[in-house]
């Protein structure tokens, strides 16, 4: 992996365990900072939006922390951006989990309850099926095992780069230009997850290179 050292802002809006994401990015060579400072987000070369728990709570916390707009600005500016779990779900227009609370709406579609007679949450490792080649998954050979904890999932087939099987086929990762998002937790998925984060840092580096 390239020696990275790139400044990556991990958005800290007071939800859950953010430290693992920061430590995993640092392990892969990034200058990863937990931050709620919009100026630091603006300076960062890449942005990571983690999230665990409930969609509505996360959206409210993101809004009240003042980080929703800086996150959107980073995406619109084409800065490499990675949403994780509820951090992925918040990129969509809304969620069945909290119908009255709009999402960031930067990606089209809704987040829906995991369909069928399945146990919710899906709390397990699952194998990805690659649907489209993506630099985020570079060097990862199927089956790619990642750790999932979620009860809802975006219905975004159009941008899916990977899916997994849980009762039915569900979206596991998406890509749109320089925006990537995973329903699983790469920072909790052992060596495969670390490789994915390293790929993201490579994308940050190549985007920032002049």
């Amino acid at each position: 992996m390239s020696t990275n050292g790139r400044l990556v802002a991990v958005l800290d809006y007071g939800i859950g365990n953010l430290r693992s994401a920061q430590k995993a990015l640092q392990r892969q060579g990034a200058d990863a900072r937990l931050t709620a400072d919009p100026a630091l987000v603006a300076d960062a070369e890449g942005v990571v939006l983690p999230g665990v728990g409930a969609f509505g709570q996360c959206m409210r916390a993101l809004e009240s922390s003042g980080l929703a707009q800086p996150a959107l600005d980073a995406i619109v500016a084409g800065k490499p951006f990675l949403g994780i779990c509820v951090g992925m779900q918040m990129l969509y227009e809304g969620s069945e989990e909290a119908p009255d609370i709009p999402g960031l709406g930067i990606l089209p579609g809704q987040v829906r309850l995991l369909p069928g007679e399945v146990k919710r949450p899906q709390m397990q490792w699952n194998a990805l099926r690659v649907r489209r080649r993506s630099p985020l998954l570079a060097g990862l050979d199927e089956p790619i095992w990642m750790y999932f904890v979620h009860s809802y999932v975006p219905d975004d087939r159009a941008n899916a780069i990977a899916t997994c099987e849980y009762g039915t086929e569900i979206v596991a990762a998406v890509e749109k230009e320089s925006l990537w998002a995973t329903q699983f937790h790469p920072e909790k998925s052992g060596s495969a997850g670390l490789r994915l984060l390293s790929n993201f840092l490579d994308l940050v580096a190549s985007s920032g290179a002049t």
Binding site: S20, K23, K188, G193
Partner: peptide
């Protein structure tokens, strides 16, 4: 970098918050 749980003696939101902020899942 795999999930881990911590248990034993947790009695309050503060106990839990400290462990989660330290990196427990």
């Amino acid at each position: 970098f795999i999930p881990f749980t911590i248990g034993g003696g947790i009695r309050s939101l503060d106990d839990a918050r400290r462990l989660l902020r330290a990196g427990a899942d």
